[in-house]
């Protein structure tokens, strides 16, 4: 990995065991072992994927459903472990995967700011200092003291977005999150992300909206059935991708 790289992926492979019938209790497991019926189907969600992303590059990941986009992001985010190959990254990483997934439903919005913030690794003093800013950006107003279970999905996403984008990350992972909230909030969140772009943040971006991809990214990776099909400038790859998928 060179000095200038933000993310390096080498021969990455991720294998899942799909057991033909899901065995999730000890009783079944013992019976199957005794009857020699433990069979697994192997499934490679990603295979032989290699690329290197320089600092400040904005990379789109294209592919149809099930191509391995989310798996790739999860491996880079450190949630999922690679079966083979190596992933190295340098710098503070903020994953915006499904906003608000770490919220506790019983907790109020305010309490969730501290909980979710802690989950992203922020110290308490920092969260206390930024508290008002988060509440203001999320536009939740007095709803901040209401349990999150009573929030609409838009409100939840707004709060999640406001907490996650609190720091200027060096690597930002965006998985279909630019479509949160209403028109007004979408505009606002897009602006916030564009601000980050100016500060030489490395971005990994998954979206099915090719126009958005072209306007935000400089480079694109095209995945198909877990393999890297093409890697190049965004205009070229999106054009090939569009041709291949619309015919």
């Amino acid at each position: 990995m060179s000095e200038m790289s933000a993310v390096t992926v080498q021969d990455l492979g991720v294998k899942f065991h799909l057991s033909e019938q899901k065995v999730d209790n000890l009783k079944e497991y013992v019976i199957r072992i005794l009857k020699h019926q433990m069979r697994y189907k192997e499934f490679w969600a990603l295979r032989e994927v290699s690329f290197d992303i320089k600092k400040g590059e904005r990379v789109a990941i294209l592919g149809l459903n099930g191509a391995g986009k989310s798996t790739l992001l999860k491996v880079i985010a450190g949630v999922l472990k690679a079966t083979e190959g190596k992933v190295t990254r340098s710098g503070v990483l903020v994953p915006l995967l499904e906003l608000g997934a770490g919220f506790d439903q019983q907790y109020t919005g305010a309490e969730n700011i501290y909980l979710y913030g802690a989950m992203l690794g922020y110290p308490k003093a920092f969260l206390r200092e930024k508290f008002d800013e988060i509440v203001a950006f999320s536009e939740l107003g007095e709803f901040i003291d209401v349990p999150v279970k009573n929030y609409s999905s838009g409100m939840r996403a707004r709060l999640g977005f406001s907490i996650a984008t609190l720091v200027e990350p060096e690597i930002l992972i965006l998985d279909e999150v630019l479509s949160v909230g209403d028109v007004k909030f979408r505009k606002k969140s897009e602006n916030r992300i564009k601000e980050m772009f100016r500060q030489e943040t490395t971005v990994l971006f998954v979206s099915h909206n090719l126009a958005q991809v072209r306007s935000l990214c400089t480079r694109a990776l095209w995945l198909e059935k877990g393999r890297l099909v093409e890697d190049g400038p965004v205009e070229v790859v999106t054009e090939h991708f569009e041709k291949a998928t619309t015919k």
Partner: peptide, 17 residues
């Protein structure tokens, strides 16, 4: 060290809820 704050938050959450 980085996630010490999270440990505190999780303990607090359990007791509070």
């Amino acid at each position: 060290g980085k996630y010490r704050n999270l440990l505190g938050e999780l303990v607090k959450k359990d007791i509070k809820l």
